[in-house]
Design a protein around this nucleic acid. Structure first.
Lengths: 214, 214
DNA sequence: CCTTTTTTGTGACATTTGTCAATTCCGATT
DNA sequence: AATCGGAATTGACAAATGTCACAAAAAAGG
C-alpha cells in the first residue's frame, strides 16, 4: 500500500514517514512539503492514498486536493489538521476527501489509512461530533402535517412550491387545476401566517419564519 | 479488543463473528439478535465496540443505540446497513455513532473496527458522498459577487429577496424606486438563469439551482 | 338514501411580479 | 465643454400570483 505524505512542517512529514513505514504493509513512496509538491508528486507516483496537511504555506491543501480530485476522481485523500475548523470540514467533504483527522493522534493514523484504503471515509470523532449541527435536518415530513394543520395535498403543494415550481407546473404534476393550486397555496399561507410563495419556500427550506432581514 | 455483534439475521451475525475472530487482535464477546439483546448484552460485557445492524425486527438499532449512548456516553457504536438510507445517516450521526458502513464490504469491517477503536469515525464512502449536499453551507457571502457578475447592489437585493421581502420593501430599505428593484431582479435572474424570485430565494438558500422535484 | 364533510373547481378581481425600451442623472475622461 | 458609461428611473405592458365567494363532485357516515 503506497502512501504519499505531504506536510510543510518537515519534522512532521518525517515523523509521519517513520510511523507509516513501521507498518510492514505500507510504503511511503515520497514526501512533499507544499501544495505544489502534492500535485506534482501525486501525478508522478499515483499513490493509493495521499496523506496531506490541510493548511500549508503556499496555499491550502484543500485547493491542491481539489485539483487532484479533478484529474483523478478516484484519488483517496486523507487530510491532516492541527486544529479542526468547521469550515474546512465541509470543504474537505465537498471535494470528496476520504478523511479528516487530527495530527496529534499518531496511533490512529495507521488504522485510518487502512480504512481509507478499503474505501471507507474516516473522521476524528471530535470532528464528526460537529456534523449533526451542520446538517440541515430534513424534518419536512415532521413539521408539515404535524405542527400545522396541513393536509397531505397541502404539504405536497408546499414542497413543490419550495422546489421552485409555478402554479401551472404544480397543477400539472398533481393533476389539479391551476385555480385549485392557488387556493391550496392561499390556505397554506393563511395557516402558516405567511405572505407569498417566496416566504413559503423560505419557511420550508429554513424551517422558520423568514426573518425580515436587519 | 472486544466486540459485541448484533444482527437480527443470524446468518449474518455468525458470519460477522467468523470474520472478526479471524483477526488475532479481536474477540467477539457475544452475539445478539435484536435491539433488546443489544442493550442487555452491552451492559453485560461493556465491549470496546458495538457492531450493530441499523434496522432490526423488534425496533430500529438506532433507538437501541441512542439508549446505550445515553447510559454510556463513551460507547463506540458502528452501524451496519444493507442499503444506505440518507435518513438513517443523519440520525446515526446525531446519536454519536462512530460509523455507518455497508454490510457487503466484508473486507472493510476489520479496518473500520480498528479505526473506531482508535477514536475515529468511519463511513462507507458512498455514504459520506451524500453528506455535502446535506450540509447547510453558509457560503452566502462567497458566491454572490464572486461566481457570477453580481454588483454590490444586486447581491444585496438578492439577499433581501431571500429574506422574503417584497419589491416595495426592498426599495424602501435600499432607498431605491420599486421599478429599479424590479430591474435589478430581472438582471439577477438573467445572470443566474432563473425564472422568478422564489427560485432566486431557493438558489440563495440552498446554493444550487432549484432541482425541479421528481 | 340522504346528509355532511372534504376535495376540487370556477370566475372575477386586485396585486405583485417580471420584461423592455427609453430617459435622466452623475461622475469620470478626454 | 463634450462625451461616455454606469446607476437609477420611469411608464407601459404581459404574466403570474393571491384572495374571495361560491359551486360541483367525491367521499364518508349515518
Amino acid at each position: 500500500m503506497n502512501i504519499l505524505v505531504v506536510d510543510d512542517d518537515k519534522l512532521v512529514a518525517m515523523s509521519l514517514r517513520m510511523i507509516i513505514e513501521a507498518d510492514p504493509d505500507m510504503t511511503v513512496v515520497d514526501v512533499g512539503y507544499s501544495a505544489a509538491d502534492a500535485i506534482r508528486l501525486y501525478k508522478k507516483h499515483l499513490p493509493d492514498v495521499l496523506l496531506m496537511d490541510i493548511r500549508m504555506a503556499d496555499r491550502t491543501g484543500l485547493s491542491a486536493g481539489a485539483e487532484i480530485r479533478e484529474k483523478y476522481p478516484n484519488a483517496k485523500i486523507l487530510f491532516l489538521t492541527t486544529f479542526n475548523d468547521d469550515e474546512y470540514i465541509v470543504k474537505a467533504l465537498s471535494i470528496g476527501a476520504r478523511g479528516y483527522i487530527i495530527k496529534q493522534d499518531f496511533e490512529s493514523i495507521i488504522p485510518a489509512l487502512k480504512a481509507v484504503q478499503e474505501g471507507q471515509t474516516v473522521f476524528g470523532s471530535d470532528v464528526v461530533g460537529r456534523l449533526p449541527s451542520m446538517i440541515r435536518t430534513e424534518k419536512q415530513e415532521s413539521f408539515d402535517r404535524e405542527a400545522f394543520g396541513l393536509s397531505d395535498q397541502e404539504a405536497e403543494v408546499m414542497r413543490l412550491v419550495s422546489c421552485g415550481l409555478s402554479n401551472r407546473e404544480i397543477a400539472d404534476k398533481l393533476c389539479l387545476s391551476e385555480g385549485t393550486v392557488r387556493n391550496y397555496i392561499s390556505n397554506i399561507l393563511a395557516k402558516l401566517g405567511l405572505r407569498d410563495r417566496t416566504n413559503l419556500a423560505i419557511f420550508y427550506l429554513t424551517g422558520g419564519k423568514p426573518g425580515q432581514a436587519e
